[in-house]
Design a binder for these strands. Structure first.
Lengths: 195, 195, 195, 195
DNA sequence: GATGAATGAGGTTTCATTCAT
DNA sequence: TATGAATGAAACCTCATTCAT
C-alpha cells in the first residue's frame, strides 16, 4: 500500500519532490508508521526497485525461450518478446517512468539501482543478438557492442515514447497499439542489424 | 563562471543534490553574490538550459543543409549530421548528461525545459525523414511517427551510451570513435527504416 | 530481567541514550510487554532506583552498629564500614555508575531520586561523625557540616575512582584491593578530621 | 551569546533535555542561525567545553607557582590554590555544574571531553602532591595514586557541594565563604595525607 | 558589485507510548 | 500475559532566500 503510493508519486514528481509526508498522506497512515515498515526513505525505494526489477526480469526471461531457424522465426520471436515487454511496461507504467528516466537527480544508491535494472535488460538483449549472430542470421561484422546498444536504445527509448511521449508525460496516451508497435520495431531492428 | 560550475554539478549530482551553497563554494563567491546575479536557483537553471539549447540547435540545423539524390548521398548526409551531433555532445558532456537523463526528479519547469530541448531535436529529425520519404528514398508505409521515434531514440540513447555508458557514468570513456559510430548508426537506421 | 537489562544500559549509555526499544531488544521481549509491566520508562527507572537504594541503605546501616571507645576502635569501625560499602559497590557496579554520576542530564524526577540516595548516604555519615565528636574523639571546632562534606566526598569520589577510574569507564579495573583502600581511606579521614 | 545560553541551559536541564530550539529561543535568534554558527549541537558543545577547559587550566596553573619550605608554607600554598579554584568555580557555576556531574547520559564524545577536563585537574593535583612528597613534607608510604585520588575527590566533591549542595541544585547558596572553606580543606587534606 | 550573517519553512527521522488481538 | 502494528509529538538539521552593510 505504502509502496504503491510511493511508486506512483516517485513516477509523477520524482524522488526528491516526493516527501515522506506526501507518501503517508496518500497512504492514509501516520508518518511514524512508514518508519515502522521501512528503515528510511532510501531503503523503501530500494525495496520498490527490487520488486520491480525481479518481475521485469521474469517477464524478459520468459520471452527468450524460443528457438529460431528462419528469418521469419526470428522476427516473430523478437516481436513476441517485444510484445511481452510492452505489455509489462504498460501494466507497470510507474515503474517504467522511473527506470527510463535514468534516475537523474536521485541519490547515488538509487541511481545505481536503476542502472542495474537497465543493465540487466541490456544483457538479456545482447545474449539474444549474440545467439542470432551465432546462428548466422545476423552478420558478425561491425561492433557487436555498439549494435546491441542501437537495439537496446531503440527499444528503451521507444517504450518510453510509447508510454509517455517525448515529454515524459505520465498521462500521455499513445495512438499505436502494442502489437503494431512490436511488429514494426522488430522489423526495424532486424533490417537495421542485417544491413 | 557560476553557470559553468552549476552545469558541472547538476550533471554530476543532479539538480536537487546540488545546493546553491555547493555552487558558490566551487565558484569561489559568496552566496549572496549568486542572488545578485540570478533571481533564483530555478532561473539560473533555465538560463543554463537556454544557452545549451540554442547552441545545440544551431549545430543540428547546420547539419541539415545538404540535399540528397542517392542512397549514398543520404547515408553520407546522415552520417555527417550524426558526426556533428556526436562532436557537439562530446564537447558538451555535462549538458548532455542532464538532457539525456530526461530530467526525472527536478522541478516541473525544469523537466519542461528539458523536454523542449529533446522535442526540438526530435522535430529536426522528423523533418529529415519526411524529406527522405518525399524524395522516395524511404518507404511511406507504416507509421511515420513511430519510425521517427525509433530513429530518434536510437540516436539519443546511443549518444548517452557512447558518452556515459549504460550506467550514466560521467567519467565513462567509450572505446568507439565518433566517426565509426556515426557511420554505423547511419547504416543501422537507414536499413532499419528501409526494411 | 527487564530491570536488569535497563540498569546495565542506563549505566553504560545513560538514561536518554537508552531507548525503550534497546531495553526490550536486550530483554528479548516485545515493546508492548514492557508497557504491560511498567507504566512508563520513568516509573520503571524509579522502581530500579528504589530497589538499589533500599539494599544500599541496608548495607550502610548494618555497618554502623559498633561502638567505639578508642582511636583504634574508631578507625577499625570506619574501616569495616567502608569495606562493606566498597564490597556492596563492587557488586552493584551499574547502580553505582548511575548514582555517582549525579544524574546530570536525566529528568528532574530521576535526578531527585539520585540525590535522595546520595543524601541518605551523607546523613548516615554525618551521624557517625557526630557520634565521634560527642565521644570526644574528634575536635568540635570548625564547621561540622563542611567536614562531613569533606569525608563524604572523599568516600563517594574514591569509590567512583576505584570502580571506574577518573574517566567513569564501566570496564575500568582497579589495581587496589578493597581492604587496602578501606584502611587507607579510614586513616586519611581520621587524621584529616582530627587535624 | 548562543554559547552563554547553551551553557546555562545545559547546566540547568542537562544536555539531552536542552533542545536546540530552547537555546535559540533564549538567545533570541532563529534556529537556522544556530546552524550557521555551529555545525551541530554536538560541535557547539565541544566548543563550549574547550573554552571552559582552557580558562580553568589557566587558573589552576597560575596557582601552582609558589615554593614551599615549611608546613605552614605548604598549607598556605594549598589554601591559596584552593581559593583560586573556588573563586573560579563560583564565577563559572554553570561550567562546573556540568563538569562535576561527570557527564552521565550525554553522548560519548561529550562524556570524553568532560573526563578530559577532570583528568587535567587531577594531573595538576598529583604533580603538587608529588612535589610535596619529594620535599619530604609528606610521607612517601602508601599508594600515592590512591591518596591523590582522596585529595582530588575531596576537592572536586567539596566544590560541588559548596556550589550546589548535595542535591546538585543550581540555585543552592552555601553558608560558608570561600576563604574559610579553602583553609579548612587545606588543613583536612594536609593532616589526612600526613597521617 | 559583493558579502557575512540571518532566517522561515519544511525535511527526514526518532521515540515513548497505545491499540487491537 | 504477550505482541505486531500503529501513532503524535517533536527533535535535529537543511536550504533557498533575504537583509544590512
Amino acid at each position: 500500500m505504502i509502496l504503491a503510493c510511493a511508486l506512483r508519486l516517485f513516477a509523477t514528481r520524482g524522488y526528491h519532490l516526493t516527501k515522506v509526508s506526501d507518501i503517508v498522506r496518500e497512504s492514509g497512515c501516520a508518518q511514524a508508521t512508514f518508519y515502522w515498515h521501512f528503515k528510511s526513505k532510501l531503503e523503501m525505494t530500494m525495496e520498490l526497485f527490487d520488486t520491480g526489477r525481479q518481475s521485469m526480469l521474469a517477464t524478459v526471461e520468459r520471452g527468450f525461450r524460443q528457438h529460431a531457424v528462419s528469418t521469419d522465426d526470428m522476427m516473430n520471436n523478437t516481436r513476441g518478446w517485444l510484445l511481452d515487454l510492452l505489455s509489462f511496461a504498460r501494466e507497470n507504467r510507474y515503474f517504467f517512468a522511473i527506470v527510463l528516466a535514468k534516475g537523474y537527480g536521485a541519490d547515488p544508491e538509487i541511481d545505481a539501482a536503476i542502472s542495474g535494472i537497465r543493465t540487466a535488460l541490456f544483457d538479456a538483449l545482447r545474449r539474444n543478438i549474440g545467439q542470432a549472430v551465432s546462428l548466422g542470421m545476423l552478420p558478425a561484422d561491425g561492433d557487436i557492442e555498439a549494435r546491441a546498444a542501437f537495439v537496446y536504445h531503440t527499444i528503451e527509448g521507444t517504450i518510453g515514447w510509447w508510454l509517455f511521449g517525448l515529454g515524459h508525460d505520465l498521462d500521455h496516451e499513445s495512438g499505436i497499439d502494442a502489437q503494431t508497435l512490436a511488429a514494426s520495431m522488430a522489423k526495424y531492428e532486424f533490417f537495421g542489424l542485417r544491413g
